[in-house]
């Protein structure tokens, strides 16, 4: 009103109190909107629409696979732990088609062969030697150019006798070709142009075309991997000492209890384990 003294600026605390009230009002509004639209405790006005959208994206295969995974947790009974997994783009190309359980043919050793995928990449066992290049085995970690370890499986905890748990969850033994004085990785990872291109177009390729491209991923790869004794032997191809294994672990790996057991029972249960028959 004219003649009245001008009102002063609000005190600063008013703005803070106002802000808090606005947040509360907004929260109540959001809650009410949720209650009316989607909440199972309200009239569920938007639920039919949500269900319609879900039905569009629904996949019977996906549901079945998920259900199987849940059943497997209970079938297994001995609490399964999830482990960190590499981001897809740095995984070896093998994982575009194969899983961590690639071996299934030989009933007697398939699970044991699959066990090895924790310790080395597929190429370590399935590499075809290249003319003019020797193969060297080193620890390889796609997230660390020069992994220093300690690596899992290389030593025992003297107190418990268990294998020592380590921080490095990704390093595996991998082959390198020594050409001249240089080491070249024998791996292809999913970040490579060929792999990226394949992932992009594989749905558009005919089965024949797909087979054609797959051959390119299998250069230097032999279908049957090494026999056990190629590594688990005094003169094995892996230099365990250089790879950082402790003395007692090296002894166990070379005269491997499992290999020992296999040899012991060779005649009785698995006579063809070390033969040339494909696994």
């Amino acid at each position: 009103m004219p003649g009245e003294p001008k009102r002063l600026e609000h005190p600063k605390s008013v703005y803070i109190i106002g802000f808090i009230f606005k947040i509360i009002t907004l929260s109540v509004l959001i809650a009410v909107v949720y209650q009316i639209t989607l909440s199972p405790h309200g009239p569920q006005l938007l639920v039919p629409l949500q269900k319609k959208m879900e039905a569009k994206q629904k996949s019977a295969i996906m549901e079945e696979v998920k259900r199987q995974e849940e059943y497997e947790i209970h079938r297994h009974f001995h609490n399964i732990v999830s482990y960190p997994k590499l981001p897809e783009n740095v995984q070896p190309v093998c994982y575009i088609c194969h899983s961590d359980y690639p071996h299934s043919k030989s009933k007697k050793v398939r699970a044991m062969l699959n066990m090895h995928t924790q310790f080395f990449v597929c190429e370590t066992c399935h590499i075809e030697e290249k003319y003019g290049a020797s193969v060297v085995y080193k620890w390889y970690n796609p997230l660390d150019k020069d992994p220093k370890g300690p690596f899992f499986g290389t030593s025992y905890d003297p107190q418990t006798g268990n294998l020592v748990e380590v921080e490095d969850q990704f390093s595996k033994i991998a082959p390198y070709f020594r050409v001249g004085g240089e080491l070249q990785s024998a791996l292809q990872i999913q970040d490579a142009p060929l792999a990226q291109d394949y992932v992009k177009v594989r749905d558009k390729l005919t089965p024949e075309q797909r087979d054609n491209v797959k051959k390119k991923f299998h250069v230097n790869i032999k279908p049957k991997g090494h026999d056990c004794k190629k590594c688990h032997d005094e003169k094995g191809i892996l230099d365990f000492k250089k790879l950082g294994y402790s003395e007692n672990r090296i002894m166990d790996l070379k005269q491997l209890n499992i290999a020992g057991m296999i040899t012991k029972y060779e005649k009785f249960y698995i006579p063809n384990l070390f033969s040339d028959s494909p696994q």
């Binding site: 732990v81 961590d100 359980y101 299934s104 044991m112 699959n114 066990m115 995928t117 924790q118």
Partner: peptide, 8 residues
């Protein structure tokens, strides 16, 4: 004791 022991 090896976590990848298994199969499909």
């Amino acid at each position: 004791k090896y976590r990848q022991i298994g199969r499909i």
